[in-house]
Amino acid sequence: MPFATSCCGIEFMSTMASHYDIGRYGSERLAFTPRQCDLLMVMGTISKKMGPVLRQVYVQMAEPRWVLAVGACASSGGIFDSYSVLQGIDQVVPVDVYVPGCPPRPEAFLDGLMRIQDLVGKESLRRRNSDHYKALLESYGIQ
């Protein structure tokens, strides 16, 4: 589920296209509805007003779900140290992997994706039922 708002989104398009082709890494089917996705890729500046929208998208995804924050803006607000910009999406949704860069190159996207796949492969099946995980979601106000 790509959530692209700015230049990282453009970089993602080239990651998606034939030259880099994210499909080669087992991520062939991009969907634009949260209900059919496991991974939320947030690429670009998220303003405070966009925050609740992003949260809504996350809530609509079914468990198990992962979040990839791509680029400086999604990870920390980046250069936009401003009253209107969310200082990192981890203020509204829990993030699994951060990809640095402004914007990151497609290789970095692919690396981030593979780290998510690492998590997917290795995390315990019971993790989503653990108290730790429940407390984490609770801290974001998501049940």
């Binding site: 920390s76 140290d81 401003s82 009253y83 910009v85 200082q87 203020q91």
Partner: peptide, 16 residues
């Protein structure tokens, strides 16, 4: 212009 209510970051590390 910078959001003064921000508490989650080290200002020095983020150029403030």
């Amino acid at each position: 212009v910078e959001d003064q209510s921000r508490v989650d970051k080290d200002d020095e590390m983020f150029g403030r």
